[in-house]
């Protein structure tokens, strides 16, 4: 793939808050990039400063040092009426209204283009329709925002940003409060926008799984700064594992997932290779057993035509079980 234009770039950026007589520095020395057509996930723990960075990036909050360039222009030199045509921002702030229709929310994305009273011209209507179509919200466009699911509400906000017709779309926590399938569908929608519409999408999340699978680039907040690279690069260098280091979590670099570290003491010999055997290992791990081929206690997993059967062999004694639940509740210790 050819290298695309840089949409957003920070150089030695310092972010934080300046109050009357105090400077509260959240993070500094940030040099990050996002290119056209890229999906960028900003990942960090809660309170790490994800929102601060995004708000600084879209010009809502002044930086404390360094520079930001959007489409090659210095953010500070971009005049305020022009900025809404370069970057759109969807935050987590709640709406004040309940009885507003999906289409009306999306139409507000045309704000920078409409006249003093906000009349939608033909091209505005077209942009709204296109945004509704692209996000799959056309059929629900007449519904009020209170009568749709959380995922659909998030799609509405994405459509609103899309209607604003900017190259850069910044979203703060678009997958917060969503269930797993909706989380995936929102992130894959964002990815689709980068592929089909050449957008540059930067979104913050603490959902590492979807980001590792879908994002082109991850901005990973570590204790000291932000690491910027392809998800696999960050895994390879051990950055991901370090960033989320915890005595309770272990990161599997090959699978890109975290799992709990357990004090697995008792050995148990597991025979079988089927899916049932894998799930048995998982269940045993949860209950404090570790797979040890030389252990005295043995479990044989058989896939019979009428269902799975587990045999526990303890010396001369053998017991049969028909479910993993029964099995683990009868294990010694």
């Amino acid at each position: 793939m050819r290298r695309r234009d840089i949409t957003a770039e920070t150089n030695d950026l310092a972010i934080g808050y300046r109050s009357r007589n105090r400077v509260n520095l959240v993070m500094q020395h940030l040099s990050l990039q996002a290119r056209k057509g890229e999906l960028v996930a900003l990942i960090g723990r809660n309170g790490a400063g994800k929102s601060s960075l995004l708000r600084t990036l879209v010009g809502l909050q002044p930086s404390l040092g360094g520079s930001i360039k959007l489409q090659g222009k210095d953010l500070q030199s971009i005049e305020s009426p022009i900025l809404p045509r370069i970057v759109s921002f969807a935050s987590t702030e709640p709406m004040a209204v309940r009885n507003i229709k999906v289409r009306d929310v999306v139409a507000l994305g045309r704000f920078p283009f409409t006249n003093w009273i906000g009349t939608l011209a033909r091209e505005d209507e077209e942009a709204v329709n296109e945004a509704l179509e692209a996000t799959g919200m056309m059929l629900l466009s007449g519904r009020s925002i209170d009568n749709i699911s959380d995922g659909e509400r998030q799609r509405t906000l994405i459509a609103r940003s899309l209607a604003q017709d900017t190259e850069l779309l910044v979203m703060d926590e678009p997958t917060a409060f969503l269930d797993l399938p909706s989380r995936y569908s929102i992130v894959s929608l964002l990815r689709q926008l980068t592929r089909e519409r050449d957008k540059c999408v930067i979104y913050s999340t603490h959902d590492l799984d979807t980001a590792i699978n879908e994002a082109d680039r991850i901005w990973l907040m570590t204790g000291t700064g932000i690491a910027d690279g392809a998800p696999e690069d960050l895994i390879l260098t051990g950055t991901v594992a370090r960033a989320f280091e915890s005595p309770l979590l272990a990161f599997s670099s090959s699978e890109g997932t975290f799992s709990f570290i357990r004090g697995n003491q008792t050995g148990i010999a597991l025979e079988g290779t089927s899916l049932a055997a894998q799930l048995t290992e998982k269940a045993l791990s949860r209950c404090g057993y570790r797979n040890d081929p030389h252990a005295e206690l043995k479990i044989i997993v058989r896939d019979n035509p009428d269902g799975t059967e587990w045999s526990v062999v303890n010396g001369l004694q053998t017991e049969q079980f028909r479910s993993l639940y029964d099995l683990v509740s009868h294990l010694p210790g």
């Binding site: 879209v58 809404p84 759109s88 969807a90 935050s91 929310v105 507000l108 920078p112 604003q164």
Partner: peptide, 19 residues
Amino acid sequence: VKPLNAMLMGETFSRTVGV
């Protein structure tokens, strides 16, 4: 009326669309 309509979406949104 136009800024008022944007303000229904919240202050952050209003500012980012140029209010």
